[in-house]
């Protein structure tokens, strides 16, 4: 019987575990917080309207809903703050990698010679902080490819150019 792993040990290749990952920009936290706060503001507004017109026709006060929504907001913010520290990326000679996740960790690597195209986009709030996100697309149902948010605009541009050059070679 042949062991697949022993069979391969003749070759040495670069190891993903040994490379240093870079964290994304700290100011991205502000973008996340503003986005989140806007979302919850809308939720609170909805709740307020429901309270005002007594939509659910409840007997008791609405206070508990406000408190629980605030609680959810705090928890989400807390998770986002910790989760942000886990978002890291690395660009190597031939591929680009991205790590993320607190409870669900994931590490994705896309080799340059499989990339179809690269995109940079900037949301309105991110633009204010000069941040951008870089998306990499490969063939197939490209829903699950790699997207790095919270890069400095210049960094994103630089990576994009680097990848484009690598693809053309």
């Amino acid at each position: 019987m042949i062991d697949s792993f022993k069979n391969l040990e003749v070759i040495t290749f670069p190891e993903i575990a040994n490379i240093t990952f870079r964290k994304i920009e700290k100011s991205y936290l502000k973008v996340i917080l503003i986005n989140l706060s806007l979302l919850f503001l809308v939720l609170f507004a909805l709740l307020f309207v429901a309270d005002y017109i007594n939509f659910f026709e409840l007997q008791y006060t609405f206070l508990r809903f406000y408190i629980s929504l605030s609680f959810v907001y705090l928890i989400v913010v807390f998770i986002k703050i910790i989760g942000l520290k886990k978002r890291k990326y690395a660009v190597r000679e031939k591929d680009i990698s991205y790590k993320k996740g607190l409870f669900f960790k994931s590490l994705t690597t896309v080799p340059f010679n499989r990339i179809q195209h690269v995109e940079i986009d900037q949301g309105p709030i991110a633009r204010f902080f000069n941040l951008a996100s870089l998306s990499v697309f490969t063939a197939g149902d490209s829903s699950e490819d790699l997207k790095i948010s919270g890069l400095l605009k210049e960094d994103a541009q630089q990576i994009k150019e680097y990848i484009s050059n690598q693809i053309d070679e």
């Binding site: 996740g101 607190l102 409870f103 669900f104 960790k105 994931s106 590490l107 994705t108 690597t109 896309v110 080799p111 499989r114 490969t138 063939a139 197939g140 699950e144 490819d145 790699l146």
Partner: peptide, 14 residues
């Protein structure tokens, strides 16, 4: 033929 690779771990798997 692989396009990209992904490693996934939940906190329990870690």
């Amino acid at each position: 033929k692989v396009q990209n690779v992904k490693l996934k771990q939940t906190i329990f798997q870690v």
